[in-house]
């Protein structure tokens, strides 16, 4: 007796095989998506540690400036808003990808990347301004922990931007519409995660004074 016999090993790669994955796994869920959520769960402990370090040290300013003296709340509010809206454009990219609308996908991905870049640009500006006002990385515990926390977040956003741009490039070359839809979804999850981390940072770091 021969069983129906073709087994194709799928889904070892973030990008290409994942879409048909859902049909062969024990849970019916895609490997990459499970992996991504596990990764994000793990990231919670990473950012948790950095945020806790900042919370513990934010009042310890040595001879340097205090948070109240240097934070520019209106400016940061705007850049926070930009990042928040990039989540909307990201979700629209995912929706377009599921509809196999590659043009729409690429458009929204590009807009998301631009919004992200605006945010990172704002952060660079902010860092420079703080530095000029006397808050260096080595000035005080506040300085060290502030730059470490927001810097880690900034690196995450930058990685996200690179992924978005790469995805647009790959998408443009692909001949099958919607073939990258799961990758779009995965990068979307990552992007939203980076956004929710900023939601927390914005409140705990900027809005709540020491």
């Amino acid at each position: 007796m021969l069983r129906p016999a073709t087994v194709m090993r799928l889904g070892h790669h973030m990008a290409d095989t994942a879409t048909h994955e859902a049909h062969v796994t024990s849970t019916g869920l895609s490997n990459v998506k499970l992996g991504m959520w596990l990764f994000l769960g793990s990231e919670c402990l990473l950012f948790g540690g950095l945020i806790s370090t900042y919370m513990l040290y934010r009042g310890r300013v040595s001879n340097g400036p205090t948070p109240e003296q240097i934070y520019d709340i209106p400016f940061t509010s705007v850049s926070s808003f930009v990042l928040l809206m990039s989540s909307l454009t990201m979700v629209l990219a995912v929706a377009a990808a599921h509809k196999k609308d590659d043009r729409g996908t690429n458009l929204w991905l590009t807009v998301t990347a631009l919004l992200g870049a605006t945010f990172v640009g704002g952060q660079v500006y902010e860092f420079t301004a703080f530095y000029n006002e006397g808050l260096g990385f080595t000035t005080s515990l506040f300085g060290s922990s502030f730059y470490t926390l927001t810097g880690f977040h900034g690196v995450h956003v930058t990685v996200g931007i690179i992924m978005l741009i790469a995805l647009v490039a790959i998408n443009k070359r692909s001949r099958v519409p919607g073939s990258k839809s799961e990758t779009v979804e995965m990068i979307g999850l990552y992007w939203h995660f980076v956004d929710i981390v900023w939601i927390i940072i914005f409140t705990l770091v900027y809005l709540i004074p020491v």
Binding site: G49, L141, G143, S144, T148
Partner: peptide, 20 residues
């Protein structure tokens, strides 16, 4: 990730002068 944070803080202190 928790030890990752700790190791980063220590690296930043030793290599870049952070004060953690």
């Amino acid at each position: 990730p928790v030890i990752t944070v700790a190791l980063f803080l220590l690296t930043f202190q030793r290599s870049f002068g952070a004060q953690f």
